[in-house]
């Protein structure tokens, strides 16, 4: 199947620069997935994103959107069909929340009724209070502005959504909340999303696949979150991921998505975890209660299995790499 977005050997060197901002980058992003671009400051994340909506033209290489080279598309057309959420939201200060959200539908010439319906719908989708529609951006909190930014990007129902550090300006609690909302939103609208962040935990939480970039726009590794944590391809990736990789893998894997043991013979006195909980919760219970295993329960609370330390360890495939202890 043709990926929604395909970067083929894309490089960018800005005029006058001695090194590449992005070097020979090739990525395939399947339709309906979230791809995170992570890496240290200045590694070319934003540049990559801006090449996708042609705010920056690559020096070499090509970018295909659903099989069509983006250079063959009208640039304004391409941008209207590509949602763009920029850092700090970038809302138009002189336009009300409703008008901000309506920007692209109005550019596309939708009739008034349709625009209005869409605005009302989006407000619900991103969890915004409809009372805010008549306000100006300066009268909103940072979190509300971010929501408006997302609603505005989604307004014309673009198949592709580009997000540049959308949650960097809000505090950790609001950020976690907005991240959960994005996951929830993604379950409903299934966009192809490219998410730029330098927060590796945000990438691990939100992305289906992660591209780790190094300074100079060099791709270090392109893998799923679990694969990345299990087998970092280079010392750089390993360092970027930080410590406790095994625990973080456990945090990514729900109990119910892999093999579990039989229901323990005696369940009384044992802690329980639900099938939807992450494996890490099972491990936490084992350690906290000082027991051999936990009881896995279904949504209705009835026991469906058990999890002991060995099973949990096997679920993340052997012991962590020897490098960790070296």
């Amino acid at each position: 199947m043709v990926p929604a977005l395909r970067l083929v050997a894309v490089s960018k060197r800005f005029p006058g620069a001695r090194t590449d901002a992005v070097a020979d980058l090739s990525l395939d992003m399947p339709e309906g997935t979230v791809t995170a671009l992570v890496g240290p400051s200045g590694c070319g994340k934003t540049t990559t994103l801006r090449m996708i909506n042609r705010l920056v033209e690559p020096t070499s290489g090509s970018i295909d959107l659903f099989g069509t080279d983006i250079r063959q598309l009208d640039v304004h057309e391409l941008r209207r069909r590509t949602g763009y959420v920029i850092q700090q939201a970038g809302l138009f200060p002189h336009r009300t929340v409703a008008a901000n959200i309506a920007t692209v539908p109005q550019l596309l010439g939708w009739d008034k009724q349709r625009v209005r319906e869409r605005v009302d719908q989006l407000v619900g989708l991103v969890g915004l209070d409809p009372e805010l529609l008549g306000r100006y951006p300066a009268e909103l909190s940072g979190g509300q502005q971010q929501r408006v930014g997302v609603a505005r990007a989604l307004a014309a129902d673009p198949p592709l959504l580009l997000m540049d550090e959308p949650y960097s300006a809000v505090d950790p609690i609001v950020r976690a909340h907005l991240q959960d909302e994005l996951l929830d939103l993604q379950r409903r609208v299934r966009k192809t999303i490219v998410l730029v962040t330098h927060d590796i935990d945000e990438a691990l939480k939100l992305a289906d696949q992660i591209a780790v970039l190094n300074i100079g726009g060099v791709l270090e590794q392109f893998a799923t979150p679990d694969e990345l944590l299990r087998a970092p391809a280079s010392p750089f990736v390993e360092q970027f991921l930080g410590r406790e990789r095994a625990l973080r893998r456990l945090a990514l894997q729900p109990v119910g998505t892999g093999p579990i043991g039989p229901v323990p013979e005696v369940v009384e006195g044992l802690p329980t975890v639900t099938t939807g909980a992450p494996l890490r919760e099972a491990l936490d219970a084992i350690v906290a209660w000082g027991v051999e295993q936990v009881v896995v329960v279904g949504d209705d609370g009835s026991p469906v299995g058990g999890l002991d330390l060995l099973t949990i360890t096997e679920r993340i495939g052997n012991a962590p790499s020897r490098r960790d202890t070296a």
């Binding site: 640039v75 391409l78 763009y84 920007t103």
Partner: peptide, 14 residues
């Protein structure tokens, strides 16, 4: 603000 200009361009305003 640069972010506002970037948004305008990125959303396809000519």
């Amino acid at each position: 603000p640069a972010a506002v200009r970037e948004a305008a361009e990125g959303m396809g305003l000519n």
